[in-house]
Amino acid sequence: MILIDGQPMVGRQAGTLDLSRLTVHNIERIEIIKGASSSLYGSEALAGVVNIITREAEKDGKWQGQAGYRLASFGTHDASATLQYNKGIVSLDVFANYFASRGYSLAEAARLPTVEPFHNFTFQPKIKISPSEKLSLMIHSRFYGQDQDYRAFINEALFAGKSLSREWNQTLLVRQTLRKNWKMEYDLYATHYRFDEGLRDAGQVLFEENLYRQWFYRPEIRTHYKMGHNTLTAGVGMNYENPAAYPF
């Protein structure tokens, strides 16, 4: 199970998750738990949990920016930019990444490349507003999109099209300290993943179409009550999931 800042990623096709959807340039750290963690995260965490913690603005009271670009073989471009601000009650971290490749072939004699050309884009703004030490609101968003060529030879005829992936993650989290030893967390998470793929013949007639849609919502209320060295954590929440795929 893959989590981004503690919230699950969706969009498994045939049971597997495409990990290359995530760029590593804004990762603060990755926490890996091997072994069943289902009591905390549900049945998907049977084998383990990978939690990706993304960077947050550091406390220094000014605007800060970072930009990076990398050019690599196979026409690979990897560009990232970060803008951070942290002053008073507002903390802001905006991250953007562009990744593209011309694709490559594992077998030189092949008529079509093993990996077709693609380009993708990630945009991840994180806002934190803390009106007082006892209250904070976090709004985390993430948008991802990838376009890739899709071609196939069927009975010696070339069919061509595109593979399109789109992903959206949204977290709204309110943290409230009621008393010195009593904290509340109100959490609302929504995510959507969609995938569209089509093949057309030379006359632009649609030959094949693959679709995938998944919506996932998770509202939760958690409370932490501290009694001496021990903390009691309790909560209530629900999952609503709506996956749809064609033609599977």
């Binding site: 495409d18 990990l19 290359s20 760029t23 990755i30 890996i32 990978v50 690979t76 694709g103 990996v115």
Partner: peptide
């Protein structure tokens, strides 16, 4: 650059490359 490359390096994690006919580009 990408998460699949980083997780491939971790002991105890098994990642599987899937070149599935050019549908998904990497892993």
């Amino acid at each position: 650059s990408r998460l699949n490359e980083v997780l491939q390096e971790q002991t105890g994690l098994l990642t599987v490359p899937d070149f599935g006919g050019g549908k998904v580009y990497n892993c």
